[in-house]
């Protein structure tokens, strides 16, 4: 089971599920990270956290521990 936080720079993946044990999962879903969507890791800052994903035509930055809740194929 791979997580979005483990993606490589520039890699594209499809979201499989969102882990609802993560306290932020609702907001992650609401902002558009839903199963079936393609995401791409477009930026990792110098601290490797937060990560920026391209999703549904926009760029969303979220912390690594939040990206943990995004399960990818």
């Amino acid at each position: 089971m791979r997580k979005a936080s483990e993606m490589n720079f520039g890699e594209k993946c499809i979201i499989k599920d969102i882990n609802d044990m993560n306290p932020s999962y609702k907001r992650i879903l609401e902002i558009g990270f839903t199963p079936g969507q393609e995401i791409q890791l477009v930026n990792t800052s110098i601290f490797n956290d937060p990560l920026t994903f391209s999703l549904r035509g926009t760029l969303i930055a979220l912390r690594k521990n939040q990206a943990d809740s995004i399960i990818i194929n």
Binding site: P23, S24, R27, I28, I31, P50, T52, T58, L59, I60, A61, L62, R63, Q66
Partner: peptide, 9 residues
């Protein structure tokens, strides 16, 4: 302690 950071760029 549910600290979070989600921001649209």
């Amino acid at each position: 302690d549910n600290s979070s950071f989600i921001l649209e760029l």
